[in-house]
Structure formats: structure tokens, C-alpha cells
């Protein structure tokens, strides 16, 4: 039903899939995500829709292998079918002509920030993009982001490519220089989004983050994805995934991300063992 049309490993352990999902491709807007199941026994995992083609009915997802499900997904090939795929879930990003905006992507967050960046520019904004990763190999979608934004700044943590440093350091510099930034999007690992929110706070610039909470249904039915924002409980899947980063209760959010750490590790190790044996 949900056939994988193309598969590419765009960086070590980071894979891009194009999947046939015409109904989703028709309606999706930047900021939305899907939930997929690899097989009947699988876990429902959320992944951002990194790109879409309304004509050929395909969506593109980009994911990093971090555990059992993503490892299993990385073993699938062109022509294989996913067991389930549902979307588009969550609210679209609020795209408007703000003036000057900054989009920041860290790691696979680059994929999430890409469609937002593109749409912001199309809406008439001057978009400064900052992307970063641990090392040179892990910088993804550089050309696409360059095309989608007005200006692009690249960093690597280890300095193996472009500037050395964290995306948040560059963000700080940009905000010192640019006096008229209206809004910032920062998407990536939770510590990065938290740090980016701390950088923008003294400047009083609204900062949107996209929370990667642990989900089950993704439609507001279970409450697994809940997070405290401005003192209120919100469900990331239906009230988000984007929130004002200055209002998110980060320590609670990060604690909740680690809820199943032990079991996840166990599951991943068991999978690797079986797979390793099977593949010789």
C-alpha cells in the first residue's frame, strides 16, 4: 500500500525515502509529520515530512538510525511496502511574510526545517538558514537548503567542514548583527532546541521549536506526547508539534524522552544480534 519508491543513504546512517502516499502528498504543509509502522509487530514512529510532490503523489522522509525501528526501516528497499503510514499529522507551521527570519537545523532537524525554510522564502521573507552537524559527513541537504534560503551558514561541531562550532553560536552571532529578525525556527535534538531558545530569549525574538515527543497514535488519543508549555499541558501531536521554545518546560520534556531508554536499548541490541547472525 505504501510503497517505497526511492531509497538513498544521504549520510552515514541517515536515509532518505520517497514513499507513495498520494492523499498525504496532496494535503501536507510544512511542519507536519507522518506516523509509520514497519510491520505488524512494529512500533508507531513519527517522522517529519521533509518534502512532497503533489503531482506524483510522493512524500519524502529522512531519518537517522537510532534504534530498532529506524534500523529495521533502513533495511527496507525500493519496492518494499510499509505496513502502515498515516498523516499528515500535526499543525502546519505558521507561514507568513514576517520580514527577516532565521531557520536553524541540527542533525536530522535539517530535514524538518527544509520545507519550512522553502515556504518562508516563497512567502517573501528574507531567510537566513543555519545548519549544523557533528561532523562533515553528517551535513545533509546542503544544496537544497541553500536554494531554499536567502543566505546559508554551515557549521560542524568538530570543524571538519565549514565553520567549527555549534549552530547556536552562529545563531547568537547572527542575532548580534541582524537587528531586525522577526522570528526564529530551531529544529533538532532537544538540547539544541533548548539552547537555541536560550540564545534568542534575551533578544525577545519568538522562537519556534518542533518537539519530537514520544508518540503512539499521533491523533490526540493517548497523551503519551504531552508536554508542559507555559504551565499548561499540551499534546504535541495535536497542539503542536511546533511550540514557542521560550515557554516549553525543557527539563520535563527531556525526562519524558528518556522514558523507555532501557527497553529501547534492549530491543535494539536484540535486533542487532538476530540480524547480525542472519546476515552471517
Amino acid at each position: 500500500m505504501y510503497k517505497i519508491i526511492t531509497k538513498r543513504e544521504i549520510a552515514p546512517n541517515i536515509i532518505s525515502l520517497e514513499v507513495a502516499a498520494p492523499l498525504i502528498a496532496k494535503r501536507v504543509k510544512p511542519g507536519q509529520f507522518i506516523i509509520l509502522l514497519v510491520d505488524e509487530r512494529g512500533e508507531r514512529i513519527p517522522v517529519t515530512i521533509a518534502d512532497y510532490n503533489r503531482e506524483n503523489g510522493r512524500i519524502r522522509i529522512i531519518f537517522q538510525v537510532v534504534g530498532k525501528t529506524t534500523a529495521q526501516l533502513s533495511q527496507m528497499n525500493e519496492g518494499d511496502e510499509l505496513f502502515a503510514l498515516v498523516g499528515p499529522l500535526g499543525n502546519p507551521s505558521e507561514i507568513d511574510n514576517y520580514g527577516t527570519v532565521v531557520t536553524v537545523g541540527g542533525g536530522t532537524g535539517i530535514a524538518s526545517v527544509y520545507p519550512i525554510t522553502r515556504e518562508l522564502k516563497e512567502a517573501g521573507n528574507r531567510v537566513i538558514s543555519i545548519i549544523g552537524a557533528k561532523t562533515r559527513d553528517l551535513i545533509i541537504m546542503e544544496d537544497e537548503i541553500r536554494k531554499a534560503s536567502t543566505e546559508l551558514l554551515v557549521t560542524t561541531d568538530d570543524g571538519s567542514y565549514a565553520r567549527k562550532g555549534f549552530v547556536t553560536e552562529i545563531l547568537d552571532e547572527v542575532l548580534q548583527k541582524e537587528k531586525d529578525v522577526k522570528k526564529v525556527w530551531a529544529i533538532g535534538p532537544a538540547p539544541m532546541m533548548k539552547a537555541a531558545s536560550e540564545v534568542t530569549k534575551p533578544h525577545g525574538i519568538e522562537t519556534i521549536v518542533s518537539l519530537n515527543a514520544i508518540m503512539v497514535d499521533g491523533t490526540g488519543m493517548c497523551g503519551s506526547c504531552r508536554v508542559t508549555v507555559n504551565g499548561e499541558t499540551k499534546f504535541v501531536c495535536v497542539d503542536g508539534p511546533e511550540f514557542n521554545g521560550h515557554l516549553v518546560d525543557w527539563p520535563e520534556f527531556m525526562n519524558r524522552l528518556a522514558r523507555y531508554e532501557k527497553m529501547e536499548k534492549h530491543s535494539f541490541e536484540a535486533y542487532r544480534k538476530v540480524c547480525g547472525e542472519e546476515n552471517g
Binding site: R41, G42, E43, R44, K68, T69, V216, D217, M221, C222, G223, S224, Y260, M263, E264, H266, S267, A270
Partner: peptide, 22 residues
């Protein structure tokens, strides 16, 4: 209760790790 029961019933988490949902 919805999350707890959904994990257990729909996702068969009571059979973890045979089923993936914890």
C-alpha cells in the same frame, strides 16, 4: 489509561520485545 491500554492492547506491548512497543 488510554496510553497504558493502547500500548498493551493495540500495540501488544505486554509481549515486548516480541512486539516493539515498550
Amino acid at each position: 489509561a488510554n496510553e497504558f491500554l493502547t500500548r498493551s492492547n493495540l500495540m501488544k506491548a505486554y509481549k515486548f520485545p516480541e512486539f516493539d512497543t515498550p
